[in-house]
Design a protein around this nucleic acid. Structure first.
Lengths: 254, 254
DNA sequence: AGAATAAAGGAACGCTTGATTGTTTCCTTG
DNA sequence: CAAGGAAACAATCAAGCGTTCCTTTATTCT
């Protein structure tokens, strides 16, 4: 664990093995976290096990006490994340029956979850391609179940007449893409708070699900003169906050 | 170019150099296309130059007549794509002044472009992290300019009172994420045609931009009894088509 | 205190990678 | 038809990769 880089003097280096205060469970957790961090930053293929080992303060060979493969490390991270996501979503939705309320709950949950665990989400979305076939099948199945949650909400709402959704599957993909996209640019401590963002995004989702507003009567027509009677934009003061950004992948919109 | 794998008999193999009918420009184009294909399927880091060379029917060393680096190959692909995207978008929007019409045009353009050039788009979105700092800066700048197109449309529409967008920047990210997400699941020849998808997605975008519909009055309230008076879903027959899917990355929702 | 076990070191392996170089062959132009 | 450039081969390099194996040290349990 806490082991310094070998100093220049070769004679002074006592060939150490188990380091003082080392603990299996703690190391395993450290490896997991460092793995998430490095995969997030560099990508799975680009992260070497020597890099990972150095991050934890280990030798690369020692990692194999904690996972079978590099591949299995990725799989464990992604599977655990997907199960956590799915479980927490179901828990949040439990007991709520009204489609509109369920939609808002789902939207808010998804956004908050993605703003809180950006690294995990990012990895789960980007590194699916790096999973071997069997592992990927497991993860895709979990994702399917998650998407079904939203799809069923939309279907139920459309059946009840609350929503105007002609294609629930398409709308599901569209909404999830939109919501997930927040972790491509959101930084904690940014201009807008999590609550404000949840409000904005959920508003967009609900507007999309509940169908055309007043100004959209002739939707498919090519272009017409715009009516100028719409209401003024509602005021919503966004208090500015200090920005403190953490380690980010190169995908950042910096 | 057209060169077979070395046969088993070593003595019979005449040590070939320049192959018959080889042409620089054609090979360059073949390398570019194969590069897009392989990066799309396996990812930039996972694609080896030997793999790429084999795809084109070359020796790996010969590739260096056509690019300086593996890195530069990626950069060329991504930069050219971004410039093409930006240029075509500006061309499509040229002459249109009405914000709503501009929004629809942008949405339709973005969708069609992304449905048509899924591989390029996918690469440009996923492999930005693999670009070196300077290259990434160029690409990010181009992406910024593209995003500004939509942001200005929203801003203008809000100013004119046509749109109800309190946060144009957030709405821009949300909309682009939603639209771009289509290339995560769209397959040509699927159940819905490009035109139908454009209609559905553009409807969602316009609804989101034009603000709350009738059923969304009390938006931020936790949960209330749902009103049952909304209109029935509009009919839209989606003719079923044969599905013919091409080579896809492992990220596919199969 | 001593044995058993847990945790890590450290060296090596086979392999692949991106890249370089010198040579050979084809094509074009005079 | 010969010269020069274009196009590709073929061999090679050092570096880095994931992984294995055995040893060494710390901790825990009788």
């Amino acid at each position: 664990m806490m082991h310094e880089a070998t100093p220049a003097a070769t004679t002074l280096t006592p060939t150490m093995a188990r380091t003082i205060g080392s603990n299996g469970a703690r190391t395993a957790e450290a490896i997991r976290q460092a793995g998430v961090k490095l995969i997030y930053k560099h990508g799975y293929e680009a992260m070497s096990l020597r890099q990972l080992a150095a991050e934890v303060g280990l030798q690369s060979g020692s990692l194999y006490k904690y996972f079978e493969n590099k591949q299995n490390l990725l799989f464990d991270i992604v599977r655990d994340h997907m199960e956590d996501l799915l479980g927490k979503a179901e828990a949040d939705l439990a007991g709520i029956t009204d489609p509109l309320a369920r939609l808002k709950t789902f939207s808010a949950f998804h956004l908050r979850y993605h703003m809180t665990r950006m690294a995990h989400v990012f990895i789960a979305n980007m590194e699916i391609r790096s999973l071997e076939d069997e592992h990927r099948a497991v993860v895709v199945a979990l994702r399917r179940r998650y998407e079904r949650l939203l799809e069923e909400i939309l279907r139920q709402g459309a059946e009840d007449g609350v929503f105007q959704v002609s294609e629930p599957k398409v709308a599901t993909y569209a909404i999830i893409s939109m919501l997930t996209g927040i972790c491509m640019w959101y930084r904690p401590g940014g201009r807008l708070s999590q609550d404000e963002l949840v409000e904005i995004y959920t508003g967009l989702v609900v507007d999309g699900a509940t169908g055309p507003g007043p100004a959209t009567a002739a939707r498919t027509l090519p272009l017409e003169a715009r009516p100028l009677e719409a209401a003024a934009a509602q005021p919503r003061d966004s208090s500015t906050r200090a920005k403190s950004r953490a380690a980010r992948p190169k995908t950042a919109r910096a």
